[in-house]
C-alpha cells in the first residue's frame, strides 16, 4: 500500500460556522494505480490533492504514507517525505520564468543536494527521455503551452518519485496537447510503474486512469 486516508475531515471557520472542505474521506491507494479525482468546482478536489501531497494539513483523521503516520510527523519530516516521494504537476505549469528549461529541471535536485555531476546526468537523461534536448536553453516564455507542461512533468519526474500529483494538468492546453500529456501519463504509469493521482474535469482524461473518485461538497460519492 502506498498511502491510506482514514476519516479525513478538513474545515474552516467562517462567521461562527464550520464550513467543511473535506468530509470523512477514506481512500486507499496501491502502488501503480492511476486515479482520477472528479467533481464540480468547489467540491474539494484540489484540497484533497494538497492533503495527499502534504502541502496542506487536515483537522481530523489519519494519513499513512508508506507506513509513516503523516498526521504525527513534524513539519520537517513531512517535507522530507514529500520531497523524496512526491512530484507535482500544475495546471499553469509553474515553471520559473527566469530559468531555462535545463535550469528548471535541475532545481528539485538542488534542493535534494545531489552533486553537480549527478545533476547533469539526470537532467540530460530527462531531456533525452522527453525529447526536448533542443529546447534546453530556451526560457519557458519561448515554449508553447504543451511544451511547457512537458517540462513541468519532466521536472516532477526527475527525482524518481513514487507518486505524481497532477492538478488539472491539461486545463490550459488544447485537445491535441492534452492528448499528448495524457498519453505520457499512461506510459509512465504502465511502463515505469509510477503511481499517478490527477484532478480533472474531463471524462475523456479520466478514462486514462484505472479508477475514478467523485467528490461532491467535500464528500466521496
Amino acid at each position: 500500500m502506498l498511502l491510506q486516508l482514514k476519516n479525513i475531515f478538513k474545515w474552516v471557520n467562517s462567521g461562527g460556522q464550520r464550513i467543511f472542505l473535506l468530509k470523512d474521506i477514506n481512500l486507499d491507494v496501491e502502488e501503480g494505480e492511476f486515479i482520477s479525482i472528479m467533481g464540480p468546482s468547489g467540491s474539494g478536489k484540489s484540497t484533497l490533492l494538497n492533503v495527499i501531497g502534504m502541502l496542506d494539513g487536515f483537522n481530523e483523521g489519519e494519513y499513512q504514507f508508506l507506513d509513516e503516520s503523516v498526521h504525527h510527523l513534524k513539519e520537517k519530516y513531512r517535507s522530507n517525505l514529500y520531497k523524496e516521494y512526491i512530484g507535482f504537476v500544475f495546471q499553469s505549469y509553474h515553471l520559473l520564468d527566469d530559468l531555462t528549461v535545463r535550469e528548471n529541471l535541475e532545481m528539485p535536485l538542488l534542493y535534494k543536494k545531489f552533486k553537480a555531476a549527478e545533476r547533469k546526468a539526470m537532467v540530460a537523461d530527462m531531456l533525452d527521455r522527453f525529447q526536448i534536448v533542443g529546447k534546453k536553453d530556451l526560457f519557458p516564455a519561448q515554449l508553447s503551452g504543451g511544451q511547457q507542461q512537458l517540462v513541468g512533468v519532466a521536472r516532477a519526474l526527475i527525482s524518481n518519485p513514487k507518486l505524481i500529483l497532477a492538478d488539472e494538468p491539461t486545463g490550459n492546453l488544447n485537445s491535441q496537447q492534452s492528448e499528448e500529456i495524457m498519453q505520457l501519463f499512461k506510459k509512465l504509469n504502465e511502463q515505469d510503474g509510477v503511481t499517478i493521482i490527477q484532478v480533472t474535469h474531463s471524462e475523456k482524461n479520466a478514462a486514462y486512469g484505472s479508477r475514478i473518485i467523485n467528490l461532491l461538497d467535500g464528500r466521496k460519492v
Binding site: 501531497g53 502541502l55 517535507s79 514529500y82 520531497k83 507535482f88 509553474h94 515553471l95 520559473l96 527566469d98 532545481m107 528539485p108 534542493y111 535534494k112 521536472r155
Partner: peptide
C-alpha cells in the same frame, strides 16, 4: 510569490 511557491513545492526549505 509564485516562484517561492514552486520552489517550496519542489523541496526548498524556509531558510533556503
Amino acid at each position: 510569490t509564485k516562484e517561492i511557491g514552486v520552489r517550496k513545492v519542489l523541496g526548498a526549505s524556509v531558510s533556503q
